[in-house]
Each structure stands twice: as structure tokens, then as C-alpha cells.
Write a protein that binds this DNA or RNA. Sequence first.
DNA 1: CTAGGGTTAG
Length: 613
Amino acid sequence: MKCNDESSYFPCLQTCKTLNRLKSVHAHLLVCGSIASSDLILNKIIRLYSRFGATDYARKVFDEITERNPFLWTSMIHGYVENSQHTEAFYLFRDMRSLDVTPLNFTISSILKVFGRLKWSRDGEGMFGFIWKCGFGFDLIVMNSVIDCFMRCGEVDCARQVFEEMEEKDVVSWNSMISGYVNNGRLEIALELFDGMDEKNVVSWTSVICGYVKKGDMVEARNIFETMPTKDMAAWNVMISGYIDVGDVHTASFLFRAMPHCDTGTWNLMISGGYAKNGKPSAALELFKNFRKQSSLELDETFILSVISACSQLGIVDSVESVISDDVVGSRYFSDSRVVNSLIDLYAKCGNIEKASQVFEAADKKDFCCYSTMIAAFANHGLVEKALSLFEDMQRKNFEPDEVTFLGVLSACNHGGLVDEGRRYFKQMTKEFGVEPTDKHYACMVDILGRGGFLEEAHEMILSMHLAPTSAVWGAMLAASNVHRNAQMAEIAASELFKIEPENSGNYILLSNIYAAAGKWRDVARVRALIREHHVKKNRGSSWIELGSAVHEFVRGDVSHVDADRICFILSLLKEDMKLSGYIKDKDLHPISTVYPSYLSLSGDTEMDEELF
DNA sequence: CTAGGGTTAG
């Protein structure tokens, strides 16, 4: 590379496809010294850093420049805006004004985006007077931005007035009005404007389609879509997401296959919105694999986030681990705390607490959410001490715990049977941190107290709740009553549960089991009669395991698996082992499969497993 | 040799 010719750096900077590449070119420029003073190069570097989401780097470059021209200010402000760092953008704009730097029209349109997104319609900073003072009263770009800003603030009439008074309007002015009306729920007016336009472009058409999609009218949306002269990717995406929203995954995937080109957004829509959230995990995973195979597209943060979250809901990790973690760990995504957070969650939910912990340790950017997730992960794996010491660590680092954090902490106490600590943390949460407990916190406390034998105290806690006790709370009470064979308390809890969720078979079965254990056979018969009377259906619990890239699902009594014979054989061996190590089948009690507290949002099924033993 | 930088609507 030649070091004395700045023009040769322009094409070089343009080819920087990754942040690391940009950093090394930037480093090279710094070494060469003389180039570093060129405004044009520096501006380009600021733009590129911002585009990669590295506004902190951009700002470093910006701060080191002694004489800043309006272009540099604009680039930096815009960098913040495109990365949703609204406060930073606004403060920088204010600095610019206080130094009497004359803004460009692009500066104004960038900062107006902040006003629009934050719905600052009140002109608190004298913005609109300032625009006229700068001579932008007739600037097309600025006035278009003003329209958009008013529309986003819901000031439909102000936007209209600006629009009417503009001497010169372009297609953007019209489109801003149309989309503004659509987003303010005034489709009729949007259509009027649309019909009155002479030069419509793809944005005008898509805005109108959006209007129908918002109403859920996919028939009319489809009509417009078929009529529009040229369709770009965004238009297809709007249609696909519209079909997904109304639950028509079939048509969505038809369009998906029919569209000539698509972006990560489209894949994302189909994988996470279309399949994963509509109960078709295997289709989602299949599509994800296709994405990796066919597409040369780069993964982006939102995409990674939704794939990870889909996988963690399914508890599937192996088949996506290789693709996900190779791309994420050590890459720029890894410096996004949301990605770190969801990775921790993924590994933890899939049972790999070591890996979750490794990700946590390796991450350089951790926010309080990462701590909360890690605490909950330790707690759910029974690593009580680790959970609690991480909580202490978090406070030492001055992260403010919130309700999610405390749920993890309380859950740790629950797993460790730490009644006193549970009481203490609950008190600390409400008194010291002013966090309002949710039903989940109450459910957890009831579980801690109840299982610890303090059934009365647990009951009192429910009665003192400032919100209506949910099924999770009474469910914990019922489960605790079962542990301590307290039929009286069980009756109280069960009768509340029957009111809240009469269709849940688990409650009836649990109560009848408690009666059975107490030898109250008439009560058992009464509950069984209730089940028939209310036509309660048994929940079918299922479990699944991932082997290689295939997911094997099992339901009770299922012998359809190809290896069913061998599985049953192994099971019988395990039963023998259990007997030999002293397990005695409890004849009086109808055995219940593991009862998880329902606030842990595990399956929650409590069903009789007579067939297993 | 010069110009180059920045941008609003779905």
C-alpha cells in the first residue's frame, strides 16, 4: 500500500467488509501519520465504524479531531441515530449548536429522526424555529423529515399543514404522508393520497399494502401486491410477515419460495416467526440448515438472537451449536450483550451449565441481564452457592438487580432448601431495591416456605399478596401440601386452583393422590367424579432428546420408535438397578412424575405414571 | 487534473 497518496485509501476503505478489516486499515493509516489529518478519510472512517455498530470507535476518531467541519459532526450524529443511541445523538447535536457550527440539511434530518422516534412533538428545543433560522424552510429533505417527525408523534394535522404549504414536493413527501396516515390508523386518507399521486414508487405501494396488513386484510393486501408494477424485497417481506401474523404459514412459505431474492430478514421471518413460533420446530431447524447451506448472507444480530431463542425454547443445542457458536463466539456478535445473554440461556436450558458458564466468563461485554440469566442458570442446575455468590459479585460491580435477578436468587434458595435466606432476599428485594414481587416471586416463596414445612407462613404470604394469586402460586401451595401430606391445606389450594384453571388435570390428580396417601378413599372418589363431571382431559406430557441432528420425541406408552424394544429393555434394566439400590415402590400413593414448580415454566404436567413402575 | 464527504419515505 502506498502511504503518501490519500486517494488510494478510498477504494481500500470501501472494501472493508468486516470491523476487524476496518480496524487494521485504520491502524495502518495511523502509522502513516500524514494521512490521519485528512477530513475526508476521517469522515469515511467514522461512517464505517458507525455502520458496523462501533460508535465508540467512531467517537474516539471524532474526539481526536481538533477542527471539526459540519460533515464530521453530521456523520457522528447520524452514526448514533442509526444505532438507536438517541441520547448520545441529541447531546452531540446540542454540543454542535453551542459551538455555533452551522448544520447541514442532513444534520437536521438525522436529528429529526430522534425527535420522531422519541415522540418529541412539543418542539422543546425550539427545533422548528431553528430550522427556519438556518434557512432550511424550503429545503426538501428537511421538510420531508419534518413531516415524518410530526407523523411519528401522532401530529397528523401539523404534518398535513407542512405538506400543504410546501411549494415543491417530491415522491418522498407524498410517501411520508401516506405511511404517516397508515401508521396513525387512517388508511382511507392514505388511499386518497395514493390515488392522487402521479409518480408512485415501490415505497408508495408498499405503504398501502402495510395499511391492509395492519388491518389483517390479507385479501386486499394481496390484490395491491399483485397489481404493483415492480416488487422489491421489502414488499415481499411485508406480505410474508402479514401472512405469518394471521397464522397463514402455508401462504407465507409459498411466497417465500416464489420470491427471487431474499435477505436475512426474510429467513428470520420464516424461521423464527413462521415456524418456531407456530409450533413447527423441526421445520424451523430444517430451514435454518438450508440457510447455512444455500445462503451467502451474513448472520446479523437479530437473526442470531431469534435462532438462539427458538433453539433454547426447544432445548435443542447440538444441531445448531456448530454453526451458531463458530459464528458467534469471538466475533463481533459476541460483544453484543443480548447475544451473550441468549447464548448463556441456550446452553443452560439445554443442560450444559459448564458451557453456559464458559460463555459468561469469556464475554467481555456483560450487562445486568447476563448476570441475571447466569444466576438463574446456576439456580436451575442446583448450583446454589455459585448462584448466590454471583449475585454478591453482581452487586459489587454495581449492577442494579431487578425482578428477574431476584427470581433467580429466590429460585436458588428454593433449590438449596434455604428458607432463611429466601426470606431475607425477599425482604431485601422489596425493602432495599423497591422491586415489586410478581406472582412468580410469590410462587417461589410459597414453594420455599411450603417445602421447608412452613405451610402456615406460606398460606399467610398468599393472603397478604397485593395482587390476585395466580395458578402458579396456588400450584406451589398444593405441591408443598403434597410433600407434607397436609390434606387440609391441599384442599384450600386445590379449591382455588379449580376456580382458576378447571381444565388442568394435574390439580385433580395431585389432590386425589394426597387423599389416597391419607387413606381418605371417599374423597378420592369425589375428586375422580369431579374429573368426569368437568370432562377434564389428561394432559399428554412428552419428552424429547436430541441425538446427532435428529430429535426423538416420546409420549407415555409410546412404542412407535424404531428402537422401542431396545429402549424398553434398557428401562427394565434400570428398574432392576433401582430396586437393588433400595428403591421401594410406594403402594399407597399413585406415583407422580417429578413435579416441578410451575413458575419454572417447565412442562408443568403432573400425571400419573402407573405404567412406568 | 479535480472532486470527493452527508440524506428523508415502506
